[in-house]
Structures are given as C-alpha cells and as structure tokens.
C-alpha cells in the first residue's frame, strides 16, 4: 500500500486507494485471415502443411531429382545413402529416393480415394437407414456382419478375388470402412431426426428428400469429415500392410509397402531400405491424424482437448 499515496497526491487522508490493476489480460484481437486461423489451429496448420508438401511430392514426383523408379542396376545393389543415391539403392539397384517419392502417389491416392469412397457410400446408406425404419434393420445387420470381419482379412480376401491393382486396393479397403461410416451417419441421423427443426421442416411443407438433403445431411457432415480423415490415415496403413504381404499394389508400382517388403530380407544389414518408406508412412499418417484432430476440435468444440 506504500505506493498508493504517490499516485493519488490529492486524496484525503484515510482513503486507501486501490493499487492500479496491471493489465493481466492482453487485449484479445483474433487475427483475421488465413494466418490467424492457422495460429489458432496449430494441428491443422502442421498437419495441413505436411500433407501439402507430400501432395506436392506426389504430383511433381518426376521433377524432384528422381530417376525412373523401376530402372534396375545390378552393379549397384543395396548401396547406402550417398550424394548420388540420396536414400541408397535396393537389392536390385533401384534408386530408393525415387521409389519413395513415387510411392507417395500410391499412399496419398489410396488414402484420399478410400476416404472419399467409404464416406460417400457410408453417407448414402447411413442417411437412408437412419431415416427409413424399414430399411434400417436389414441394412444395419448386414453392416454388423461386415464389421465382424477384421478389416485387413476382409481386404486380403477381396484382393484374392481380384487382380492386384491400386484401384482394387481402394475398393477392398473402402468396403471394410463403409460400415463404420454408416454407423456414424446413422447415429447422427437418428439423433437429428428427433430435433424440432427437422419436424419444423416437415410442417413447413418440405418433402422427405428435401428434409434429408437440406436439413439432415449438412448437420452430419462435421463428424463425417473428422471420421473421413481417420479413415484416410488407416487406409494408408492398410495399403502398406497389403502391399507388404503381397496382396496390395502390383510389384511394378512402387508403394511404401512394396519397398518395405523388398527390404525385409536385408533389414539387419541394410536397415535404411526399410527405414525410409517406413518413416515416410509414419510422417504421412501423423500429418493426416493431426489434421483430423484439428478438424475435430474445430468442428466439434465439445470434445476439444485444449493444449
């Protein structure tokens, strides 16, 4: 209190002036624009940036100092990383750097395509099942049946039925993911359809398709987007697993799973062959999951975990 009288020289004796409050709270001015948005959502910023870089690698794989990823050079087998071969070469002398960069294409394509296909199909089925009671029972029992099969086994079985191609990999993984999306969408539809604004739309004269498309669908998209990013991440891993066990992308398409499978025999002496695709896969999946967490915090603030 000793400082108080100095600040209030004219104050009457006996009046104790409250010490001036320091500005504890800095003025809160949320920054506008993209920069501000990314600052407030660091996970989206980090995950998104890494993904954009990877996307860049995938699209411009041919212009990033790569050589033909399929070109073999028997005289330069299993060389360690050098200035000539940044990631070294594999057991038949193919340039690992080029193969890993081209492998980005497969991983990203499979991840995004599975997320799109599985969410699209799951969304359609889930909307109908949630809204029409007579469809609900039969459809959801089929979905339960599908879910009871471990996704990787289901994918392996489906791949065994078809020829190994990236497109078939996408379909095989997506089929295993559809039931999960379907359940999510159906459950949000079930809770949404009881809300007054849905009934309000009915009394306002909207037809059932219109109610579903205008009122139900937009309100299921937030959780679905989050789910889709997780599907994307898990699809990338599943693709790598399938390729690793030889049930995925055909051997002539360089994919991270393939590369790891081929480096498997040498991993105790030449661990880098397996390490580079493995690290790439980890970083990619991490980026997608970060993006997913960021989106969840943004779209569903109730479950947000504040860092």
């Amino acid at each position: 209190m000793s400082a108080a009288p100095d600040r209030f020289p004219d104050s009457a004796v006996g009046v104790i002036a409250a010490p001036e409050m320091p500005d504890i709270l800095p003025e809160f001015t949320p920054r506008a624009g993209v920069i501000g948005f990314l600052r407030r959502n660091p996970r989206i910023a980090v995950g998104g940036t890494i993904l954009l870089l990877l996307l860049f690698c995938a699209v411009f794989a041919g212009y990033l100092g790569t050589v033909d990823p399929a070109a073999i050079a028997p005289s330069r087998r299993a060389r360690p990383p050098s200035s000539e071969h940044w990631f070294g070469t594999d057991m038949i002398g193919r340039d690992l750097y080029s193969r890993v960069v081209y492998g980005t294409r497969v991983s990203l394509f499979v991840g995004f395509a599975v997320a799109l296909v599985a969410s699209g199909i799951g969304l359609a089925i889930g909307l109908v099942a949630g809204f029409l009671k007579w469809v609900d029972g039969p459809v959801m029992r089929v979905m339960d049946g599908l879910m009871s099969i471990p996704p990787i086994l289901l994918a392996v079985a489906l791949m065994a039925l078809t020829r190994g191609s990236v497109g078939n990999v996408v379909i095989a993984i997506a089929i295993a993911d559809v039931p999960r999306v379907c359940r999510l969408v159906r459950s949000s539809v079930l809770s949404l359809r009881e809300l007054p604004f849905i009934e309000g739309a009915v009394t306002a004269g909207s037809s059932t398709p219109r109610v579903i498309l205008r009122h139900v669908l937009p309100n299921t998209l937030a959780p679905l987007t989050v789910q889709a990013t997780y599907i994307c991440a898990s699809a990338m891993i599943t693709e790598a697993i399938l390729s690793f066990i030889g049930a995925g992308s055909p051997p002539d398409v360089p994919s991270w799973g393939n590369i790891m499978a081929e480096g498997r025999m040498l991993w105790q002496v030449k661990p880098f062959i397996i390490a580079f695709p493995a690290v790439s896969l980890s970083i990619t999946v991490l980026a997608v999951n970060l993006l997913g967490d960021g989106l969840r915090d943004l779209l569903d603030p109730r479950s947000a975990t504040k860092a």
């Binding site: 007054p196 739309a201 009394t203 205008r214 309100n219």
Partner: peptide, 15 residues
C-alpha cells in the same frame, strides 16, 4: 397449421 416449438435452440437449423 404451423408450430412454434419449446426449445429455441434446437428448433432452427444451425447450418
């Protein structure tokens, strides 16, 4: 015939 609902928070489509 139209209706006004009880809960003003769930009776309007948030989107």
């Amino acid at each position: 015939v139209q209706i006004v609902f009880q809960d003003p928070f769930s009776s309007l489509n948030p989107r």
